[in-house]
């Protein structure tokens, strides 16, 4: 059981690392948030599920699973809020972006 837990934690750490690397390497706010949300959500859930396998008390299992569910539900929403705020505040997309349909339709600030 402990070995399974360690393997899952290592996988989670790998995805966390990819998410962080994405924040450094990708060109603009929007692409960076893509990498950050996906990598960090699954990476953190991986660490939590690894702890579930390693611990022998039901308390930790229940708390970890609840945290997983809350994380899965809330992290896309916070990303959505950040991206929308960035776009309305007027941060430009990367120079080589091909299309921006939102620019035409978005509600104009007062």
């Amino acid at each position: 059981m402990i070995i399974i837990g360690i393997v899952i934690i290592v996988i989670g750490l790998f995805f966390d690392f990819c998410g962080s690397l994405g924040i450094v390497r990708l060109p603009d706010v929007y692409n960076r948030l893509q990498a950050a949300t996906k990598g960090v959500t699954l990476g953190t859930c991986g660490i939590l599920i690894g702890i579930c396998f390693m611990s022998h008390q039901s308390v930790f299992v229940i708390k970890c699973l609840l945290c997983c569910i809350l994380l899965m539900l809330t992290s896309p929403i916070s990303t959505h809020a950040l991206v929308r705020a960035a776009h309305i505040a007027g941060i430009k997309l990367w120079d080589k972006s091909v299309v921006d349909k939102y620019e035409e339709d978005k509600p104009k600030p007062e």
Partner: peptide, 10 residues
Amino acid sequence: KMLIKPGIVK
């Protein structure tokens, strides 16, 4: 060499 071509679609 990153393979990206970003944009916002509807």
